[in-house]
């Protein structure tokens, strides 16, 4: 077995294991920490695919920002096993259905993007470098990129508005 295959197997094992531990561990903080490890191993997968930029951005955004805020809220609310809410069956069903739908969307994306990826392969440019990535994002995919950023901006303003509203009522 080549070194890359061994690394991949170890990483995949860690990813799946910690993903399951995230769901099954009773203590919310332990769950969050397992999820952080899971995110790190996913970043490792990106490194294996030689996309350094994606891996580092993944670490900054998911492990460095989102999970820290998660951990922060869990610590502040002081959740533990006793506070675990019982989820009704309909919620579980809804979760499964939405997961399957996300899977369908992802598969559709992969199938549709395959010919385009092939085209990029043919050009022989280094698409891991941020120079090329930036040029493509702001030329070919300008509109979707801007839409995504507007979506994020709207979400941010919405959050600020929601947190301000309570203050006005007082």
């Amino acid at each position: 077995m080549s070194g890359i295959l061994i690394t991949f197997c170890v990483l995949a094992f860690i990813t799946v294991l910690t993903a399951f531990l995230t769901i099954f561990s009773r203590n919310p903080i332990h769950s969050a920490i397992y999820l952080v490890i899971c995110f790190f191993s996913i970043a490792g997968h990106y490194f294996l695919l030689n996309s350094q930029f994606l891996a580092v951005v993944h670490i900054i955004v998911y492990s460095g920002a989102i999970m820290i805020l998660f951990l922060f809220t869990i610590m502040l609310m002081n959740l533990n096993e006793r506070h675990e809410v019982h989820r009704p069956r309909i919620t579980r069903l809804g979760a499964i259905v939405s997961f399957v739908l996300v899977c369908v969307v992802l598969i559709a994306i992969f199938i549709n993007s395959k010919p385009i990826v092939g085209e990029y392969d043919a050009t022989g440019e280094d698409f891991q470098s941020i120079n090329v990535l930036g040029k493509i994002l702001l030329n070919e995919y300008m509109v979707p990129f801007e839409f995504a950023s507007i979506l994020l901006l709207v979400a941010m303003i919405g959050t600020v508005l929601l947190s301000k509203k309570e203050k006005l009522k007082k």
């Binding site: 930029f53 580092v56 951005v57 670490i59 900054i60 492990s63 460095g64 920002a65 820290i68």
Partner: peptide, 10 residues
């Protein structure tokens, strides 16, 4: 530089 920010955030 991104690597630096990644490590700092961790």
């Amino acid at each position: 530089l991104l690597y630096f920010f990644g490590v700092v955030s961790v």
